[in-house]
């Protein structure tokens, strides 16, 4: 075999290695990007609405809020409604029960500090897929607060009142 042919053969083998190396690098880069990049479908607003609906049904069975039975659980309202710690850790909930004039009881659970993330999104008007996936889900939707009329039982007294619910669901990674 002439030197020229040998040289050509060696160059051919060398370029095969080069292609394999490029293929490996491409595979690693794109494989990693497929793990870290993913299209996210956001259902947190829907989850916050469902949780608000579940909580209203939980504390006002048949439209009556019995303050004597939930008084001890005012800072653990999700536990009172049967949710365990693992489920509750994604949520911040606050329920205000009031009569026609004054607040009677404030029922909460979760870290109220999570609210600053929502406030930051609102103030900075952050939108888009990349940053949007970190925006928490929130009820009431678009801050349109709704008061639910109920009857409140405190001791032997029963009077008309209202419930105001706020639910925040953090992003999926939290």
């Amino acid at each position: 075999m002439s030197l020229k042919k040998r040289g050509a053969l060696g160059e051919g083998i060398f370029s095969i290695y080069r292609f394999l190396l490029v293929a490996l690098v491409a595979f690693v880069i794109l494989g990693l990007s497929s793990i870290f990049y993913a299209y996210t479908i956001d259902i947190r607003d829907a989850e916050s609405s469902i949780m608000a609906w579940n909580l209203v049904n939980c504390i006002s069975k048949e439209g009556l809020v019995d303050l004597d039975s939930i008084g001890q659980s005012s800072s653990r309202i999700l536990e009172y409604c049967g949710y365990d710690n693992e489920e509750a850790e994604r949520f911040y909930v606050r329920i205000l029960v009031s009569d026609s004039n004054n607040q009677i009881i404030n029922l909460t659970q979760g870290d109220s500090g999570k609210l600053w993330v929502k406030e930051a999104f609102e103030r900075m008007n952050l939108v888009g897929d990349e940053v949007g996936k970190y925006e928490p889900g929130y009820f009431p939707y678009q801050n349109l607060e709704v008061d639910y009329p109920v009857l409140v039982k405190q001791g032997s007294k029963i009077f008309s009142g209202k419930i105001n619910v706020e639910v925040l669901v953090t992003n999926e990674e939290n």
Binding site: F19, A23, L30, G31, S33, S34, A38
Partner: peptide, 16 residues
């Protein structure tokens, strides 16, 4: 090399 990258890109995009 362009063809290799395009193939992987399409494969990954399809997966995503």
């Amino acid at each position: 090399i362009g063809i290799i990258f395009a193939l992987f890109l399409f494969a990954t995009a399809d997966k995503i």
